[in-house]
Structures are given as structure tokens and as C-alpha cells.
Amino acid sequence: MYSGLKVLLCDDSLMIIKKMGDMLRSLGVGVVQTALDGEQAVRLFKLSKPDCVFLDQVMPNKTGLEALKEIISYHSDAIVFMLSSMGTIAKRDEAERLGARGFLQKPVSADDIKTVLELVIAELEDKTGKDLFKE
């Protein structure tokens, strides 16, 4: 049911890129794009307009929050979820204030991702009024 989704996954850790990428693909997500720093994430977002973005917080060449700010200012409806081991209340509040839809505390499980994908689908269907992703 997620085959129509295009997801951008951004983390400077090869381990997270592989682990989360595998989780997304095994859940059936159609397209998984990856970026290794905040700058790449912003560039890829503008190029490919993914349905949803997972953004790590601590990264070189633009932090996750800096990238979030740029993505939201480029496209205010962008669906972005932060992804970090540093899920302090201050960081969560700041991410929310900057327009993130949610905050995933690492280590992230397949269930966490599934919950997020459900939210993404609900929002996209709500926006278009169509049953977009049910198969």
C-alpha cells in the first residue's frame, strides 16, 4: 500500500541509511531516495519533491533543523519528520515550530516508520480527496 510513496531519507550515518532504507523498502515504499547531509537533502527535495522526508538532526553541511527550515520555506506543505537520538523537549518543540510533522527518537523501529507512513498517506489523501495509495 506504500508503493506509490516517494520518501527522502537523510542521515549522515551509512548504518541508518541502510537500516532505515531496508525497513522502508521492506514495507513496500516505492521510491527511497537518500542524502548524507543537510545540504544534499535540501537539494534533493527541490529536485524530486518527495511525499515525505526523514531528516536526521546532527549532520555536517547544514543540520537537520537548518535543512528543515529551508525545505519548509521552499514548500510550506512539505511533510518532514525529524529523526534523532537527541529527542529533547527543546529540540522537539523547535522542530515543531519550524514545521516538522513529528519527531522520531532513535533507535527507530519498523513500527515507528509504519505509523509515520500511515500519517503521510492520511494527509496526502485528505489533501487530494482521493484514495491514492490503497491497493
Binding site: M15, V58, P60, S84, S85, M86, T88, I89, K106
Partner: peptide
């Protein structure tokens, strides 16, 4: 990533228990 995960969880602990906020640089 283990170091980053541990330091991140330490940041959460410091923030929750003492209201002390720290920042991490990329590992």
C-alpha cells in the same frame, strides 16, 4: 552511530533531569 546514539540519549537525560541543553557535532 553507537557513539552518536549514546550521546543523544545522554542529551535527553541531561535535558529531562537537569534542564541542561547540549549540542552534538557530527560524529
Amino acid at each position: 552511530e553507537f557513539l552518536n546514539l549514546h550521546n543523544g540519549l545522554f542529551a535527553v537525560k541531561l535535558s529531562n533531569n537537569e534542564g541542561l541543553e547540549i549540542e552534538l557535532e557530527p560524529q
